[in-house]
Simulated scan of single mutants.
Amino acid sequence: MSITETRVSQEAAELLETLAERRQFFRHTVQGLSDEQATSRPTVSQLTLAGLVKHVSEMEAQWARFIVEGAAHMELPENWQTDPGFWEDGWKLLEGETLQSTLAGYEKVAARTEEVVRGLADLNVSHPLPKAPWFQPDASWSARRVLLHLIGETAQHSGHADIIRETIDGQKTMG
């Protein structure tokens, strides 16, 4: 293995380790909850713990596909602004979904992300971002940037989950 491959491998391993730590904090926040608790809305927010897990899992899966395939599967549907299901369904459990099934799906997504990243020769592999109002026009993201985004998004939503969980039963992830 060359020095460059060693550095890439070490960088990828460190980024994956950081992402795994953030996932663990997030999963810890929802441990021991019933589906009723996980889908409750104890604050004025529409967020639920189960919905947060589902959203983070779906977004990570989408970004792992982006690293491999680019943005083709990320294009917004024409009616994305007017279809309530476009936003709402990704943030709540649908019929047949449970907190446990959502967590199991998240584990599979995490394994797939790790497989994708460990299979890369270079974290600089890059693709143009899809057209969306929240992305800079004509921007591209590298696999490295995607991993940093996933770490940030997982940490941010883990913080949301901490607040909701503490409101439900007083449990805190840390402290």
Results as ranks from 00 to 15, higher is better:
residue 22 R to F: 10
residue 60 E to M: 00
residue 66 F to T: 08
residue 75 E to Y: 01
residue 127 H to R: 05
residue 8 V to A: 10
residue 40 S to W: 03
residue 164 I to N: 03
residue 125 V to A: 00
residue 46 Q to K: 12
residue 139 A to S: 14
residue 106 Y to N: 00
residue 75 E to V: 13
residue 158 S to F: 12
residue 40 S to E: 04
residue 88 E to N: 10
residue 67 I to C: 00
residue 64 A to Q: 05
residue 136 Q to T: 15
residue 169 D to N: 10
residue 36 E to I: 11
residue 141 W to F: 13
residue 124 N to C: 09
residue 167 T to I: 13
residue 49 L to I: 11
residue 151 I to A: 02
residue 53 V to Y: 05
residue 29 T to V: 14
residue 27 R to C: 09
residue 98 T to C: 01
residue 59 M to A: 14
residue 150 L to K: 02
residue 57 S to H: 10
residue 90 G to R: 03
residue 41 R to D: 09
residue 80 W to P: 01
residue 61 A to C: 07
residue 2 S to A: 09
residue 105 G to V: 04
residue 46 Q to Y: 11
residue 92 K to D: 06
residue 23 R to D: 03
residue 78 E to I: 12
residue 70 G to S: 06
residue 94 L to F: 07
residue 118 R to C: 00
residue 168 I to M: 07
residue 23 R to C: 03
residue 78 E to T: 14
residue 149 H to P: 08
residue 55 H to R: 07
residue 126 S to G: 08
residue 48 T to R: 01
residue 89 D to I: 10
residue 144 R to Q: 14
residue 64 A to I: 04
residue 50 A to M: 01
residue 36 E to F: 01
residue 152 G to W: 15
residue 38 A to V: 06
residue 124 N to Y: 08
residue 6 T to M: 14
residue 3 I to Q: 13
residue 69 E to G: 12
residue 9 S to W: 14
residue 31 Q to L: 13
residue 22 R to D: 15
residue 29 T to L: 09
residue 129 L to P: 06
residue 46 Q to W: 13
residue 35 D to K: 03
residue 85 G to P: 06
residue 59 M to R: 12
residue 71 A to C: 09
residue 114 E to H: 05
residue 21 E to Q: 12
residue 141 W to A: 12
residue 172 K to I: 15
residue 128 P to S: 11
residue 142 S to H: 05
residue 19 L to P: 01
residue 172 K to N: 13
residue 32 G to K: 01
residue 107 E to Y: 04
residue 37 Q to L: 02
residue 114 E to Q: 10
residue 111 A to D: 11
residue 169 D to Y: 07
residue 94 L to E: 13
residue 46 Q to D: 14
residue 142 S to T: 14
residue 64 A to W: 02
residue 125 V to H: 00
residue 127 H to N: 03
residue 39 T to V: 05
residue 170 G to W: 05
residue 128 P to R: 04
residue 175 G to K: 14
residue 84 P to H: 01
residue 158 S to V: 15
residue 125 V to L: 03
residue 126 S to I: 09
residue 135 F to R: 01
residue 164 I to Y: 06
residue 122 D to P: 05
residue 108 K to I: 07
residue 91 W to F: 09
residue 96 G to S: 04
residue 120 L to W: 00
residue 169 D to L: 06
residue 40 S to N: 06
residue 135 F to H: 10
residue 16 L to E: 01
residue 64 A to M: 02
